[in-house]
Amino acid sequence: MKCLPSSKLPLAHGNILHDWHAEIVAIRAFNRYLVEECADLAASGLRSSAFLRHREEAEITRAEHQPFTFKESVQIHMYSSEAPCGDASMELVMDAQDDATPWPVPPPSSQDLEHPPTGLRGRANFSLLGHVRFKPSRTDAPPTLSKSCTDKLALAQTTSLLSSVTSLLVSPRNAYLSTLVLPASHHVPSAITRAFGPSGRMAGITPEMTSRWETGGSGYRFQPFEVRPVNQEFAYSRRSVEPSQTPVPSNISAVYTPKFQETLIGGVLQGRKQYDPRGASRICRKSTWKAVADLAAVLAVPALLGIGRALQYQDAKNLDLLDWRSAVKADVKGQDGPLKGWPENKGDDCFRLE
């Protein structure tokens, strides 16, 4: 199922990935790569890399306080060999059924179909479109509150691809996804427009919201990405196997950046037990937070001093420096926002750095 059951979150202590679907692993690896790129810039004394640069003192404001930013010429592109799970792939789920009639759903007790329960699980209620969905899709798997890859990518159109702790170092201004590339066989235009487009469910982002974000000068905005279909299939996709072969999913996740490589199983390093702290990946919560805290101490930027001394991870995520990011998320996930029905996946935020 490639995500951690809600009941197991208190046992993670920041060392286990909550979600290791490929899109999420890629984004987490991207964030850790950026932190290490910032560390290399600080250690070398260089003013810029191929992608990042130091921000000048005159650029630093209370709202946009980060010491680094992407170069203005840089664009970020993402390729996925399958349509992201969740709302962007619901038509594909329906088409894959022998009988495309929506699965029977017990009548709601207090809400009608226009007001479904908070969040929908996996592929259940697949006739309901445009809603936040949880992983996994299998009904016999332990429940989680990990949101679908579609929902997380939709949110990233407002918060950027940066995680909360990475955004303490790097400005979100130029950190938005430009293009999502999908195989044509998994590109359903109506689903893509509904899931991600400004005329789909993201139309719920009002001019008042965007004006408030942009007036604050924090670098946050609504930046829809373009979705481009390509005819070439990934060599190991389900559609690339011979008719006589049966594709088998793998429980292994391969992580690669120019700075490090890892192999993960169950959200931890291959060969380690899931709850062994020695199995912590470089892209897990605790490892990334520690890398940011260590670099903040080296940079000695007044605004960042003390982030490593926060008693718990939840304290680091609630720093005043993240107020603008929190405000954007509150607007988008609130009752009047386009991603309403997004409960927080709580239970793994009370750990500390050793």
Rank of each mutant, 00 (worst) to 15 (best):
F134Q: 08
V170E: 10
E226S: 06
N174K: 13
K147M: 10
V170R: 14
L161Q: 12
P247F: 08
T263C: 04
M209T: 10
L168H: 10
H186A: 11
Y176E: 07
R221G: 01
L162D: 12
V241F: 14
T139G: 08
P258K: 05
G216I: 00
H131G: 03
E233V: 06
H187W: 00
S164W: 15
K152W: 02
I192K: 04
T246P: 02
T257D: 09
S240C: 06
A235E: 08
P229W: 06
H187P: 01
K135Y: 03
S237A: 05
S199Q: 14
P198L: 05
V227N: 00
Y176A: 04
G197P: 05
L161K: 15
M202K: 09
T257P: 07
E242F: 05
T166H: 12
Y256R: 14
E242I: 03
Y236L: 10
F234G: 11
P258W: 03
P207G: 06
G197C: 01
G217L: 10
A154Y: 10
A184I: 02
K152I: 03
K259P: 00
V241E: 02
V188P: 02
S218C: 05
L128R: 15
A156D: 02
K152N: 06
Y176V: 06
F222G: 02
T159A: 14
L168C: 09
S211D: 13
S163R: 14
V132K: 08
S250N: 11
M209V: 10
S253P: 02
T179W: 00
L180V: 07
T210G: 02
P229F: 03
A203P: 01
K147W: 09
T263N: 03
F260P: 10
G216V: 01
E242W: 04
V230D: 01
P198H: 04
T263Q: 13
V230I: 15
S178K: 13
L153S: 06
F260V: 11
L180M: 04
S148H: 10
A235V: 11
V188K: 09
L162Y: 12
T158F: 04
F234A: 15
F196I: 05
A195Y: 01
G204H: 07
L155H: 03
P198W: 00
R221D: 09
V181D: 01
P249H: 10
W213L: 09
T246I: 15
S190V: 09
E262S: 09
C149W: 08
P247R: 12
Q245P: 01
V241Q: 06
L162T: 12
T246W: 03
R173P: 01
Q232L: 14
T257H: 10
L129R: 15
Y220L: 12
